[in-house]
């Protein structure tokens, strides 16, 4: 047996590491525990239908007009904020206010006028009509007003989409 063959063995620590790594991945995966970098690997695992709903933020300008917040026009740091909105129902008032303040700050940073942020629940439906995708809103419900500027009167009965 030459020296290379004698040295050719997997270190015990390597064996332990490999087993622990695989068992850990399997445990977190099976139990769907989400602690990044551990995750349950639930990627698009739920069946999609032709309707879907989400919370959407709108900014109210000085004239009371409603403008949809477009996260693609905001700094990259805001790009995942829509996912925080999906947890809004579970958030406390203070948590919601903090997220709204951050969105309002981002909008103002882009030079846009913000009197308040309104959060709506919207539901959309997608259809295929004569080979074309048609997406329409089938539900909109006002949920929260937040990040209100001093002197803001509160949500009006009817808002005009700007």
């Amino acid at each position: 047996m030459d020296d290379t063959t004698r040295r050719d063995r997997v270190p015990v620590a390597g064996r332990v590491f490999a087993i622990v790594l695989l068992v850990t991945l399997i445990w977190f995966g099976w139990n769907k525990v989400e602690h990044w970098p551990f995750t349950g690997w639930r990627l698009y695992s739920n069946v999609k239908g032709n309707t879907a709903g989400s919370f959407f933020p709108f900014r109210i300008d000085a004239d009371g007009a409603l403008h949809r917040v477009d996260f693609t026009e905001m700094p990259d740091a805001y790009s995942r904020a829509p996912y925080l909105l999906e947890k809004f129902e579970r958030y406390s008032d203070a948590q919601r206010e903090a997220v709204c303040d951050a969105i309002a700050e981002g909008e103002r940073g882009e030079g846009r006028d913000v009197e308040a942020i309104h959060v709506y629940w919207e539901r959309y439906r997608v259809r295929i009509i004569e080979g074309e995708r048609v997406k329409d809103r089938i539900e909109r419900e006002f949920r929260w007003s937040c990040a209100e500027a001093p002197g803001y009167d509160g949500p009006p009965d009817a808002v005009v989409e700007g």
Partner: peptide
Amino acid sequence: QRRYGWTIRTAIAAMSVIYCFTGLQK
């Protein structure tokens, strides 16, 4: 040689666990 091989094979196994779980969770 084993001392070079175990890291590659463990990496392949970890990758397999991950891919398999993405399917299993569906």
